[in-house]
Nucleic acid binder design. Structure first.
Lengths: 191, 191
DNA sequence: CAGTAATTTCAGGAATTTCTGAAATCAACT
DNA sequence: AGTTGATTTCAGAAATTCCTGAAATTACTG
């Protein structure tokens, strides 16, 4: 089956965006095809739709699997591998964020912590050392927030995002009632 | 001036991470050098520190400027361009998120909206069309939340991130008092 | 305007990434 | 074990990205 114009355009767009998203064109296109398809697809069907070589599809699927972005399925009496993307878009978002964090943030956080152990050698190092520490603290704050959010049920997550800045109002109110909220942070997190 | 071991290691790390972050090694290294430096640096000083060609530094700085990640300074009686990164890390985070959104999200959102106009051609298209619409809605929700957050003062932002999941408690409470919060969303956003 | 210092541009070479077809591997069935 | 069909691996070709040195440009100075 060939793609409709609508689908074609979506697929080509994902291919073009691929490089900005840190994946290559084929991977982007294949993901798009799977994302749009109502049915799981096997490799040969993907070849038809994106028009690249069979081996390229194989490699791209491996890449998508390493990102946990596709699921492998099997049909009865058919030994081919079929692939899909999750129906739930929030699951996709969670996966995407988790994987990007793992690849783009975690190695740096590890390195920053490692560098913080070092005593600053020289005077000029003092500033650099402080800067590294500050960056580490900031990233830890953001990662901690993310981990908190990731634990929430999707319904709750949607609610918070939909609230947007109006969340502030509640926090402001609550702070008046429960002062020194910040001080309680680490204790509360451990629970 | 050569870099200390501490600085060298940080700079090399940023160079290596560059490809995962969608920038090249030189750009990553130069950013790292500027980030650590207590003083603004001119191009020749950067060449000394990262050990690449003068022209490469020029191109990399242009790239960093296109990301708004560096600031240009001038010293009295010195016509060279000096570069720094903002002292405030939250400003850096804001810039980074804004630029990544601009490059990685906005073009796709535009495309999705464009494709939603199209009538689904065939039956198979119906599913694809629905999927595209769903994705558009999700991204709009996330972008709306981001824009809301971006309007907040940094102190407020830090407060919210530090709260993490405990924010939920307040929202839950508030909902009991002000029901049908969701329905009020669009009206409130326009304010 | 000539001279000088700083920066930018750019053609082409180096390095890296992506893609392909052929061969190898794997797994189910006889 | 042998056959068939699906998938993976991999060496090298193709494409892309990155980097350099030389030349051009910009902008200040005397």
């Amino acid at each position: 089956m060939k793609l409709t114009d609508l689908q074609q355009e979506f697929v080509l767009h994902f291919g073009e965006m691929g490089s900005r998203w840190g994946i290559n064109r084929t991977v982007g296109q294949i993901y798009a095809v799977l994302f749009l398809s109502a049915e799981p697809l096997h490799a040969e069907q993907i070849v038809e739709r994106v028009g690249c070589s069979r081996s390229n599809v194989s490699m791209a699927l491996k890449e998508l699997q390493s990102w946990n972005l596709v699921r492998l399925k099997h049909l009865p009496d058919d030994r081919r591998d079929y692939f899909t993307t999750p129906a739930d878009l929030w699951e996709i978002v969670r996966t995407l964020v988790a994987e990007r964090k793992k690849r783009e943030i975690d190695p740096t956080l590890t390195k920053l912590r490692e560098l913080q152990w070092r005593e600053p050698d020289t005077d000029a190092d003092a500033h650099a050392h402080a800067r590294i520490a500050e960056l580490g603290t900031l990233i830890e704050l953001l990662v901690g927030w993310y981990e908190d959010m990731d634990r929430l049920e999707t319904a709750r997550l949607v609610q918070l995002f939909a609230l947007g800045a109006r969340i502030q109002k509640f926090v402001g109110d609550a702070e008046a009632v429960v002062p020194r909220l910040k001080g309680r942070r680490s204790a509360a997190r451990e629970g």
